[in-house]
């Protein structure tokens, strides 16, 4: 039996415990584990020898599972997102994920025979940064960094940097240019994005 004093202590501790749990969900170790899984799955796809279309589908699945797609899409649309309807936002997220899988999937072929090694994990604002080194055949090693957060309740990556190139920022510029080139027509941009990349 608990004494009254012990009950009080337990009650006092309870809110702290429930508050502490979501904060503890993302750790440097869990962020590293996420990127390890992503890298392992990408390597499996590359090693599978699947057709290009098959690889793009597989990359898209990996991206949907491990990336914070709603964040990535909202970031890419930037200020243009404010004037978009909910239907446009959903359609954009869907088209954008496919576009990224095709665009970067093509480049992953340069990774055949290469590997990505997690170097270290450093804290960031509401996130951790997982820093890796890419070793590609016949190339000097280069740095690839992933930002991971548990904003959605599970650990997902929301941006990546390749030798200092911010992929989110670079794609935001591209999406902005696509919207400008279509006279601000978001629907036209989404339509063309489905076959771009």
């Amino acid at each position: 039996m608990l004494t009254r004093r012990q009950w009080l202590a337990a009650l006092a501790a309870a809110p702290a415990l429930t508050l502490a749990r979501p904060l503890a969900a993302l750790t440097e170790a869990s962020g590293r584990a996420l990127i390890d899984r992503v890298v392992a799955e990408i390597n499996t796809v590359i090693a599978s020898g699947a057709s290009e279309a098959g690889m793009f589908d597989a990359f898209e699945t990996i991206f949907r599972r491990y990336a914070d797609t709603s964040y990535v899409a909202a970031y890419a649309m930037g200020a243009d997102g404010r004037s978009a309807s909910d239907a446009q936002k959903r359609a954009f997220t869907d088209a954008y994920v496919g576009y990224l899988a095709r665009k970067y999937g093509r480049r992953f072929r340069e990774f055949i025979g290469g590997r990505l090694e997690v170097r270290d994990v450093v804290p960031a604002t509401n996130a951790v940064e997982v820093r890796t080194t890419a070793y590609l055949k016949g190339q000097a090693p280069f740095e690839v960094s992933f930002l991971v957060s548990d904003r959605t309740g599970s650990d997902l990556f929301f941006n990546m940097f390749v030798e200092g190139i911010n992929m989110g920022l670079t794609e935001r510029a591209e999406i902005g240019a696509m919207i400008d080139a279509r006279g601000g027509d978001i629907d036209a941009m989404i339509r063309d994005l489905r076959s771009a990349g």
């Binding site: 914070d68 797609t69 709603s70 964040y71 899409a73 909202a74 970031y75 649309m77 997102g81 978009a84 909910d86 936002k89 959903r90 954009f92 997220t93 960031a124 604002t125 509401n126 996130a127 940064e129 960094s145 930002l147 957060s149 904003r151 929301f158 941006n159 940097f161 200092g164 911010n166 989110g168």
Partner: peptide, 16 residues
């Protein structure tokens, strides 16, 4: 140079 800080909580992702 540090990776530019980007707070994932600071963006409105409603609807995406």
């Amino acid at each position: 140079i540090a990776t530019p800080d980007e707070d994932p909580m600071a963006l409105d992702t409603e609807g995406f």
